[in-house]
Amino acid sequence: MADPMRIRANVVGDSTEVKVLMSHEMETGQRKDASGKVIPAWFIQNVTATWNGKTVLAAQWGPAISKNPFMSFKFKGGAKGDKVVITWTDNRGDKRTDEATIA
């Protein structure tokens, strides 16, 4: 399984700002290796973020997202101590879930 994500969730006014840094190769499937063979695509396809069991963001990604993807977003509500859970799934069916406590 891939390395853990780094997630920060902070209360900003009446919203919660979430920043996520994932660890993933995000291979496009366009590049070739030294022997001229195409390196197969390997990238995160789906990302979901939930807070108290409610989905606060759902994303579909293509291979054009940078290596070690970063994303940030904000949602209304969220209190200190609540948990934000992020899950990603890549095109090989690998998945990873991490959570962070809102600070």
Binding site: L57, Q60, I65, S66, F70, F73, K74
Partner: peptide
């Protein structure tokens, strides 16, 4: 297409990420 973010009600319509060009 690089990414699609679904914004449920209650989430700010604002996202930031990094893409390849």
């Amino acid at each position: 297409l690089a990414a699609v973010f679904d914004i449920p009600p209650g989430t700010d319509p604002a996202v930031t990420t990094r893409i390849k060009m």
